[in-house]
Nucleic acid binder design. Structure first.
Lengths: 246, 246
DNA sequence: TGACCTCAACCGTGATCACAGTTTACGGTA
DNA sequence: TACCGTAAACTGTGATCACGGTTGAGGTCA
């Protein structure tokens, strides 16, 4: 434990493993790791100035959530979603995040609504800049979405949605990062405005539909790129390899 | 690695950590671990005849999925759900598993339907016995459900549902294990029959409704026991402590 | 008898070594 | 120049030791 606090921070009330875990989550969600990229335990350990042990634990957790995958060679990589997987995840997002948005419209407090409007405005402002910062725009968009989901008042829902974002984040945001023009598309603004408006009015169905347009719009943007491998995947293969048998 | 294959089995094409992970998952889902029970790394390691290292990795994964929780003391326990958490999970199950059941009704193959009927019959047979075996009944029920969900043809959905069962399994099944009379309740049979019938007919809405009755029935059975702590939980607290901030 | 202190056992965490398997790069050969 | 085999470097995995912290039991003192 002598390798801590290099930057002079108060550092760890938490464990090193949790910090590595949180850091890798950020990188994945923000699309700062390229899909398909190799992730070496010792390399990450070196970058974050810890031993391999905490990195092992963090990577193991991310593998359990399929945010990282181990190849048959036992090499760890950022997963490269197939087109079929991407479409499945989009369909699930429509159900789960749509449910959350609907509940948010019914149960949001005044403070929730204010926070939602704040993140919406911040995202809009970043987008309108002459040279928008992709990282900042992505962060604002994420904050907007999760403020909505949090407003649903169903705490158990958040980790599930975070798990979904951990899967699609690399695809969605790594692509966005490389093509800033996409950030300028008009759809974003309209979908977000409709979403916020519906939540303000307590219109659950409207919120669900507006969010669905947002999700589908982003999905179409990705599919149009044609970068996702075709996927030999029929949807009935095993989900994770350790599920209930029979 | 010298501590393997004591029973002379071909043993590990996989890793020790994965075996421990799978074993603990089984125990949790089947309700063989009491909610609130302490889980010591060294104790588990001793029971499964491995060092603490693979156990650490397995437990870490389960903690990441909130199938186990670490107390502020850093002790690891089987989570004891609050009433509020249990109700949230039930609501999410209605949405997610209901979606899967509906899709299964639309997309199931003939082989899927046959397998579903097989598991339904096995469960019914076990239930009708003079001295039914709780473990076997639980396994049949689980197999029935997951065969339905698998028939939905959405592979990405399965790990999510497994995550939900990992949370509620200890509560649902540990309770059931201690009160075999509950296994005799008529509701099970009716709900399952309606579910299978709807899936056979391609009636998505009917399948969703039948499954909802099954889930709600089980939830009411648990709530009637009154063993769940009241839960100071307002549903807007942080979900897992490492999510997106703002 | 009750409260307090002390020490031993145990807890999770991090670092490190050992090992087997894979990948990669280099040098010799055809 | 193209190919192939070998050796070095690196991969994840398991076991083990060291450490700080908590827990719980035993004994002592008021």
């Amino acid at each position: 434990m002598h390798a801590s606090g290099a930057a002079g921070e108060p550092a760890a009330a938490t464990t090193a493993a949790l910090r590595v875990h949180a850091r890798l989550r950020e990188l994945l969600m923000a699309g700062m790791l390229e899909p398909g990229q190799k992730v070496s335990l010792r390399t990450v350990a070196g970058m974050l100035d810890v031993s391999v042990q905490p990195v092992r634990e963090a990577v193991s957790r991310l593998v359990a959530d399929r945010a990282l995958v181990v190849m048959p060679n036992r090499a760890v990589r950022v997963p490269l979603l197939t087109l079929a997987q991407f479409r499945e995840l989009t369909a699930i997002r429509l159900v789960v995040e749509g449910y959350a948005a609907g509940e948010a419209a019914l149960r949001r407090t005044g403070a929730d609504l204010a926070a939602i409007r704040r993140h919406d405005a911040a995202f809009r402002r970043e987008r309108a800049k002459a040279r928008p910062d992709a990282a900042r725009a992505i962060a604002h968009n994420q904050a907007l979405h999760f403020t909505v989901y949090r407003a649903a008042g169903i705490a158990e829902l958040l980790p599930i949605i975070e798990g979904l974002w951990l899967r699609i984040g690399p695809v969605l945001n790594f692509d966005l990062r490389g093509d800033l023009a996409k950030l300028r598309m008009a759809k974003w603004e309209r979908c977000h405005a409709q979403l916020v408006e519906a939540i303000a009015c307590g219109d659950a169905r409207g919120a669900r539909k507006a969010l669905a347009r947002d999700i589908v719009g982003a999905a179409k943007r990705i599919e149009a790129r044609g970068i996702l491998p075709p996927g030999d995947h029929d949807g009935k293969s095993r989900g994770n390899g350790h599920g209930p048998g029979h």
